[in-house]
Design a protein around this nucleic acid. Structure first.
Lengths: 344, 344
DNA sequence: CTGAAAGCGCTAACAC
DNA sequence: GTGTTAGCGCTTTCAG
């Protein structure tokens, strides 16, 4: 025996207001063609009755879910959770629900994107964070009424927000160069991980460009890669310091990797900023505690901007698609310092 | 003109399989009363047709959303995002969608809980993380078919997972005492913030108990509070060090607060673990980088356990309600060291 | 074990 | 400006 119905339905509101359900529906959604006085009365009565439309029914009838989904590789890393926070705030504000989905591996992610029926009718839009989607996937999803916005990557036809990764790599490397370093290593995210392909590639390009520009020959042995976390950074730094001629400075592609590098340095009784300089990217909350020099990006903004762009697309399917270039800035703290003295 | 329909519906599957929609529905949901051969055929055909039930329609018809909502004060802090990660993994695995909701202030949160129609029909269950809910709110929500599970707090009648906060405070303080410290300060979360009332209170109780047990008189001037983040910890530590007779050791209620304390110490050119000892709670990812001694809790497990408990309640509404007591363990690193020498 | 049919609660034509 | 009504696509009695 099902529990007795007690939920107020649109029909109850209509009865109480002495109008039809259609009018209630229109009034409550601020649609035109409702007399202002009627609208007011309906809104008031709905509030009194504590009525709100059943989302499932509304979705079924209208074909829209008022739900957006944020897709990230991992839910708990600082970068991703900060993006999510930014996006969620905007969604809630706009009356959208915010679904999160952590796709561990690239395979799983790509599978979801290919098997588009996974998202169809479940969400109005996806915010893909550092997840590469092809234009075909986007197009196909769009045909199924799922719009896309991306953070960190770009997909033709979809709004995106990202930083200039090449410039970021350049900025970091140049800072090191200006301090007099010449043996500058790169601790890179795994570019063999398709999930995170472009970001490392671009940042590396910036690194190489800055080096070349300064007349320093990039050395393959100084470029090591690992996962984007603390472990990855630590292992990479260990490998670097085991070199015959170790670097005097290191550019880590994320602050978390830089943290790992810092840890390895301290385990070797080396002082960051004196013995070896380290610079990261992000400006993680904890970076100031570690006094890490870094290239700051405005991560929460990435999330909120992407959400706004996506909602814009949903409101007006033909709204212009913009690629936002979010600014970065060098934040100099104590883990970078002058390079070794010239001896000529 | 609406876009041409193209989505496969249950009816298409039924036609292709030569059975009725009812049978398809049953077969696909593993309900009894379907011949195994029929079930197989239906499943196969559904897969071929790339069919999956429209969630909105299923929800409307079945009255269940297969959605759980994780409610946290802030989405981006390490603790909360780690809980979310744990919960989301379990939900996805079980075929549930995972909504997230960040409620900034206690007022907003309480308002949502009171105005229960907010969640009705939108989600099958709520995982409240460090959010106090009354038994009445839980009961009322339950009547509206929204179940609750909590992390960090307890609500009668709802499954919960939390650590023994009193013991945690005790453990941390005892470690400091055993190192020979006597002037031990407490950096506490704001217990005037109703959002996070019980956790600080219990940890403080453990701190006081350990002190008393050891024959040390708790001093109000050594207990300062601030927000649970880095800032809060730093400000608190600054206040502490400005005291005429500053503490030789500090118990911070979270690792992030401890980070702030560490930062303040280093800005004063004081060495953690030598000049002043610092211990935190959490075992944040970055804690090992800062070599922070801490009381580790298994945060991701909290999220996954809560999710499992909640799903259990949804499967069987009369399943026993369990309060999980998640273990904690002391992790000794370098920010704690021997107290000052006795001079008698 | 299977099918027919009655809704679930709302939105969106269309008529007035 | 408002009402009527036909679905939205599924689940679930209830017969058989």
């Amino acid at each position: 025996m099902p529990p007795p119905r007690q939920r107020t339905r649109i029909e109850d509101v209509a009865a109480a207001a002495g109008v039809s359900v259609a009018t209630v529906s229109r009034a409550l959604r601020n649609l035109p063609n409702v007399a202002e006085t009627t609208r007011h009365r309906v809104i008031e009565i709905a509030a009194e009755l504590n009525y709100r439309a059943d989302p499932a029914a509304a979705r079924l009838a209208a074909g829209t879910t008022r739900t957006i989904t944020v897709v990230v590789p991992h839910l708990s890393s600082w970068y991703f959770s900060t993006v999510i926070a930014g996006a969620e705030a905007v969604c809630s504000e706009a009356g959208y629900e915010c679904l999160v989905l952590g796709v561990g591996t690239f395979e799983k992610c790509n599978q979801l994107l290919e098997e588009q029926s996974h998202f169809e009718r479940r969400t109005d839009g996806l915010i893909l964070v550092n997840i590469p989607a092809t234009a075909e996937q986007a197009e196909s999803l769009r045909a199924r009424r799922v719009r896309l916005a991306t953070v960190g990557t770009r997909t033709p036809g979809c709004p995106s927000v990202s930083i200039d990764d090449m410039n970021t790599g350049c900025l970091a490397t140049t800072h090191l160069l200006e301090l007099g370093h010449r043996r500058i290593a790169l601790i890179s995210g795994q570019s063999d991980d398709p999930m995170n392909f472009d970001v490392p590639k671009q940042r590396r390009a910036g690194y190489v460009a800055a080096l070349t520009e300064a007349g320093v020959e990039p050395e393959v042995s100084l470029m090591v890669s690992g996962n984007f976390g603390i472990d990855g950074g630590q292992e990479a730094m260990a490998a670097l310091m085991a070199l015959d001629d170790p670097p005097t400075a290191v550019f880590a592609m994320s602050d978390e990797m830089a943290f790992g590098a810092l840890l390895e340095l301290s385990e070797r009784n080396l002082r960051a900023g004196a013995d070896v300089s380290v610079i990261g990217v992000d400006d993680h909350d904890v970076s100031r505690v570690l006094r890490l020099t870094t290239v700051r990006q405005h991560v929460a903004d990435h999330g909120s901007s992407a959400a706004r762009a996506l909602l814009g697309q949903l409101q007006d399917p033909d709204a212009p698609v913009t690629d936002l270039d979010s600014p970065v800035e060098l934040v100099i703290r104590s883990t970078t310092g002058p390079g070794p003295h010239e001896m000529n």
